[in-house]
């Protein structure tokens, strides 16, 4: 499998404070990688840099061999990078089906809805088991339903890389399982998942990258990471201590 995403020596600081201080990361086609790390480690910042919401001060981001770090977000989306946001944020006053259709229509005609966009939107509502609520405005959905929609929107354009920022945050156990199953069922898309829930990470990820103070602290299989004493000390230990 060839490399899909390559991040090299990425730097980002806010008001002089370094948030990312030289991050390297490589992802193969279809690979599933979890990013873990304590609060403020720079996980969301990393996703924002890959998605184009933020620009790095230094470093490279290569997607399918192209340098994309100067591209605007919409161009990256067209090229195959989909993402969800940590705070679910669809288009609140539009109906669920209009949300999905708009997501599926991106990149098609400005004047006519494409039949395949309509089909894609319906198919995704089906997949998310939200078909019955299609006519409701998003503002009236539950938190769990909105999280599911968030993923559906990102999937609409059939991305090659999906960036997920804490997809199960704030979900009930049953809902978390639903989202996990949904993500497990995806094929042909590489996942980069920021996730605090280690059970979800175990189910979804082939490997884990640990971010700490804006640097990659460790990288490896789930087992390796869980056995890593440094990681245990600063991340897992802390997480256990919290619960």
């Amino acid at each position: 499998m060839s490399t899909l995403l390559e991040v090299r020596d990425l730097h980002k600081s806010f008001a002089g404070e370094p948030t990312l201080a030289g991050v390297d990361l490589a992802l193969k086609e279809g690979e599933r990688r979890a990013i873990i790390g304590p609060n403020g480690a720079g996980k969301t910042t990393l996703l924002n840099l890959i998605g184009g919401q933020l620009r790095p001060q230094a470093g490279h981001i290569l997607f399918a061999g192209q340098e994309i770090s100067g591209w605007p977000p919409h161009r990256r989306a067209r090229e195959g990078i989909g993402r969800t946001f940590q705070i679910s944020s669809a288009f609140p006053s539009l109906s669920l089906s209009d949300n999905m259709l708009a997501a599926a229509q991106a990149g098609h005609s400005w004047l006519h809805y494409a039949p395949e966009a309509r089909r894609r939107a319906e198919q995704l509502l089906e997949l998310l088991a939200l078909g019955a609520k299609a006519a409701l405005p998003v503002a009236q959905l539950s938190h769990g339903e909105r999280r599911a929609l968030e993923i559906g929107l990102a999937l609409a354009a059939r991305p090659r890389l999906l960036l997920l920022d804490e997809p199960t945050a704030g979900l009930a156990a049953g809902e978390t399982e639903g989202v996990t199953k949904l993500l497990q069922s995806l094929e042909g898309v590489a996942l980069l998942i920021v996730e605090h829930d280690m059970q979800v990470v175990e189910k979804l990820a082939d490997s884990i990258t640990v971010l700490h103070h804006g640097r990659v602290l460790a990288q490896g299989s789930t087992l390796e990471i869980q056995a890593n004493p440094q990681v245990q000390a600063i991340y897992l230990g802390k997480a256990h201590a919290e619960t």
């Binding site: 998605g51 184009g52 919401q53 605007p72 977000p73 919409h74 161009r75 989306a77 067209r78 989909g82 993402r83 946001f85 944020s89 669809a90 288009f91 708009a102 997501a103 991106a106 990149g107 929107l153 990102a154 609409a156 354009a157």
Partner: peptide, 9 residues
């Protein structure tokens, strides 16, 4: 921002 992340310029 959401619209832009979906590919809308």
């Amino acid at each position: 921002p959401r619209a832009e992340a979906l590919g809308y310029p």
